[in-house]
Write a protein that binds this DNA or RNA. Sequence first.
DNA 1: TAATTAACTTTGTCTTATCAAAGTCAATTG
DNA 2: CAATTGACTTTGATAAGACAAAGTTAATTA
Lengths: 227, 227
Amino acid sequence: MASRTIENYLKQIYLSRPADEAQWLTMGKLSAAVGVTPGTATSMVRAISDAHLVEYEPRAGVRLTPAGEQLALHVLRRHRLIELLLVQVLGLDWSEVHEDAEELEHVVSDRLLMKIDEILQHPAFDPHGDPIPTAGGVIRRQDCCTLLDCPLGEPTSIARILDQSAEFLQYVNQCGLLPGAEIRVANRNHQAQTVELMAIKSGENQVVAMSFSVAEKFLVQLNEQKK
Amino acid sequence: MASRTIENYLKQIYLSRPADEAQWLTMGKLSAAVGVTPGTATSMVRAISDAHLVEYEPRAGVRLTPAGEQLALHVLRRHRLIELLLVQVLGLDWSEVHEDAEELEHVVSDRLLMKIDEILQHPAFDPHGDPIPTAGGVIRRQDCCTLLDCPLGEPTSIARILDQSAEFLQYVNQCGLLPGAEIRVANRNHQAQTVELMAIKSGENQVVAMSFSVAEKFLVQLNEQKK
DNA sequence: TAATTAACTTTGTCTTATCAAAGTCAATTG
DNA sequence: CAATTGACTTTGATAAGACAAAGTTAATTA
């Protein structure tokens, strides 16, 4: 069985993998993501590679094998189901469940996970809008764009928040930009590096402005047309 | 912060402590309870003693300090609240929650524990009838006797099951002897080393017989008189 | 192309937690 | 009171996971 440390490395390798499938994840990025020194990451990755969970190419980086990806997705499934449980059943605020889930994801048994999945009625997304892999290790790809590259003026909805820190999520709360919120991007100001948008909050329109770097943390979906 | 290993040692020292307060817990019993070799227990106890969580007297044994007892009770509180949560909210069977709780007790944050306590409405007992220490580290003493030394013929109730193994609890299920069940001890046969009792199960009386060694695992309380 | 630099790897050491096996103590037995 | 026995402790070794610092590579700059 993979130790909690190995589970963590695999999860971070999955989450930090570069968009281009052919690319390797560099050791620098991995060590930063896991929170260890580069030397530690190198030696751990060597060990994980001996277990055929990753491919490792010195000075190039690391990449999950199919077996490693399955394990990573399983950890992610646990993490996201737990987050949803903490919010929906135990009533914790969505801004504060990440840390707890980070620990719980390594100790929840398959039996318990099945029960959680059942109680939540086999949910597809966690409170942050992140997709929950199936028990079989399949993850649905969302076709989303960020607030930086979605069309202007059209009615869209917040689908997913990419920054899980408590402070950021509390800011998101205040703006009313939770997953599901209906919005419209009014304008992008390239000089000021800001995005301006309208949040449609219980009938009232609220104007929100944020920098490009913050806008990147929101994934949105075009609203489906009503026929 | 105490590591999960230290938490486990403290919990076992608490649970295995001899009935007589003045006695020390021997290292043999502790090492068996924790599931390590005696040498390992000795060196861990030395370390825990350096942290002033236990007193250790070579060749005599080990005993919790007030600080160590508080920590042990806190772990026990987590364990028992989690067990109740798994049964009442997640719908697991009471016979199978012990293992999960054994892991979860070391990772549940204070914040999460408070929520669990709230949702369960500050319960006093876990599914096995074990008392749950308060957040302040106070544990109510039950005045119970076992099926071996309770009075014969009088109406009593099962208060607590001391063996938490899944197989045993499944047997308890079958006999209908869950905590709260009303019973009456009919007879003790010292030659056969058996106890015979009546379980009052939904109006019908059911006769159950068990050996002295099994009878010891049930704690019972005299039923309160209705005025 | 040589020098510099940033990123990565190696090496040696540390901590925690464990076991096996050898050593010690003290209580019982003869 | 010596010998035996069982319980406990000590010692030495191991594995996992980490860091610091020294050593490599390879890309960039001059």
